[in-house]
Write a protein that binds this DNA or RNA. Structure first.
Lengths: 106, 106
DNA sequence: ATAAAATATGTCATATTAGACATATTGTCA
DNA sequence: TGACAATATGTCTAATATGACATATTTTAT
């Protein structure tokens, strides 16, 4: 993992809080983060495609605009569960979600 | 969704706690649950394939045997995050995970 | 340029999920 | 059968994610 990637992830709030901060993240941690970032991208893409504001979609999923903003920003305080539930609420199919997950990371 | 499927899910602790309990679950809720159940299955499958006991794998992912048991049982107290992290720890690729997600639900 | 709408960021209490532990149940093999 | 390893279930406290809200920043339209 190159320094730029690492910096980008840390800028989103991702960090282990251990000595590894200085050495880099473990491969599986990076895959987990990258997968979430990939999902956050299609949430935004799909929301915009369907013409919702964050406020509107937030209401639809019984959440809040601020949380949705964090979700789309790929912040670490948002769970995969909420992201997947959001995608389902948007009507995105398992197949489409799988496609995104498959393409992200090698 | 037929009654048997509903009963099976509720037996795993899944319920909304609302009037919907009596009417059934929403489509997107069912997809969320079914997706987690599908992932729980490959966690067990992959663990056994690699010859780990729950105790051993739990240690590897810094969790506990009991949580892993719940995870493999597809209980609702286990997050998607933990399941995905576990799969990554087992070395399962994004492509394989995607394949499972793709096949589960239509 | 400026007003309005949309999005981003920070904080908080509450709710949910976490690992740990005890104990029950199941499976396996002599 | 009995003994032992593996797995399941229930319950704690601590850690983390949650929606809500206030407010800052950015984008859009005029």
């Amino acid at each position: 993992m190159d320094k730029e990637t690492l910096k980008r992830l840390k800028d989103k709030g991702w960090q282990t809080g251990t000595v590894q901060d200085f050495l880099g993240l473990k491969e599986e941690q990076v895959r987990y983060i990258e997968t979430k970032l990939a999902l956050s991208k299609i949430i935004r893409k799909e929301r915009e495609k369907q013409g919702y504001t964050q406020e509107q979609l937030a209401k639809k999923i019984h959440s809040s605009q601020s949380r949705l903003a964090k979700m789309e920003a790929g912040q670490n305080s948002v769970s995969l569960d909420l992201m997947i539930k959001t995608l389902f609420s948007l009507g995105v199919s398992n197949r489409e979600i799988a496609n995104v997950i498959s393409k992200c990371c090698a």
